[in-house]
Simulated assay, not measured.
Amino acid sequence: MKRLDAERKQIEKEVRTAQQEVEMLDKQLATAHGEEQTILKRLSDPWKEQLPNLDAERIAELAGERNRLQQSRVSEKFDLLRQDEQKRAEWSEQLRAVQSEIDRIPADARIPAAEAKRLMDEAKAQWDRANAARDTAVRTRDELKSRAEQYDRLLQKLRTAEREHDLHKKLDELLGQNGLQRELVRDAEQQIVGLANDTLQHLSDGDLSLEQDDEATGRDDKAFALRVRRAGDPHPIGVLFLSGSQKFRVAVSVALAVGRFACGRARPLEAVIIDEGFGSLDKDGLRAMADELKRLQRTQALRRVILVSHQEEFTDQFPVGYRLTAGENGTTAAPFRR
């Protein structure tokens, strides 16, 4: 009895399982039927007419044809053809629009296509030339603008330089040799001439004396216009007309006077350097020059009198010096003291 009851339960379980499988198959069948209807709706009428006549062999042939078409990418080619058809439609519409515009052109205004192309080419060439001329004009304009700016900068610099030049010129006139310098020198001229005469009288044994030449040409534009008066001669002469030895005596006298005047205001003249020039003096002139330098050293407290001369009869009158001698290895300096 128990065995039968167990078999009954097993059979009931299998029945329930079978019912579930039937329900699941019914659902799949309904889904498949729905998909079938959807596919049928997508089919064209010619295909729908062929459905009743399709058997397994024909379906296999169609499946093979489908696979071949898929491998040949016929779908993509079809899409391209459809796109080309759309473009062709657009081009046709554009062509109709162009033709419509052409139809609106009066008959007397129409020209052959070749003539139109020639005129178009000429117009394009003219446009290119005009564009090139415009570019050239733009470059020229920019260059002229740059040059104008440069000119303005240079003009500003020129004006600044002119103002500075005028200022410097004015300062030169006020402070230069024809201005303040000349006035300062003229203020000192009389004292310098007096000091120079003190030396010149000794160097020339009282024969020569200096004086200012107020009648000299250009006197208003320069200082130290001098002339020389000889003892017993009422007519003075210019310095240019003196002999070489007389010019040297005057030059030494004026140089010493300028030094004494310049140093005398702050401190006495301490040293004198005379380089050559003694060759124009005779024996008496050399003696007078040496005596005057010694006198100035005593009376003006000169600490040094430095002379350069080739005249031994002149240098022999000074106690200390150096004798320079040319040798194979150069010039040698030998000190001497008397």
Rank of each mutant, 00 (worst) to 15 (best):
R8A: 10
Q10K: 13
A18S: 09
D26L: 10
A30E: 05
A32D: 05
E49G: 02
N53L: 14
R58A: 08
E61I: 09
E61L: 09
R66S: 10
Q70N: 11
D79E: 00
L80C: 04
L81H: 10
R82T: 00
Q83W: 03
D84A: 15
A89H: 14
A97H: 00
Q99E: 14
A107Q: 11
A114C: 11
E122G: 11
R129S: 02
N131L: 08
N131S: 15
R134E: 15
V138I: 07
T140P: 03
L144K: 13
R153V: 06
L155D: 13
Q156N: 12
K157L: 02
R163D: 06
K169D: 05
D172N: 12
E173Y: 10
N178Q: 15
E183A: 15
N197C: 09
T199W: 02
Q201A: 13
Q201I: 08
Q201Y: 15
S204H: 00
L208V: 13
S209H: 03
S209A: 05
Q212A: 04
D213G: 03
D213F: 00
D214N: 07
D221M: 12
K222D: 08
A223G: 13
R229G: 03
R230D: 08
P234H: 06
L240W: 10
K247L: 04
K247Q: 12
R249N: 03
V258D: 03
R267Y: 12
G279E: 15
S280C: 09
D282H: 00
D284C: 00
A288K: 05
L296Y: 05
T299L: 07
E313F: 04
R323I: 02
N329P: 04
F336D: 10
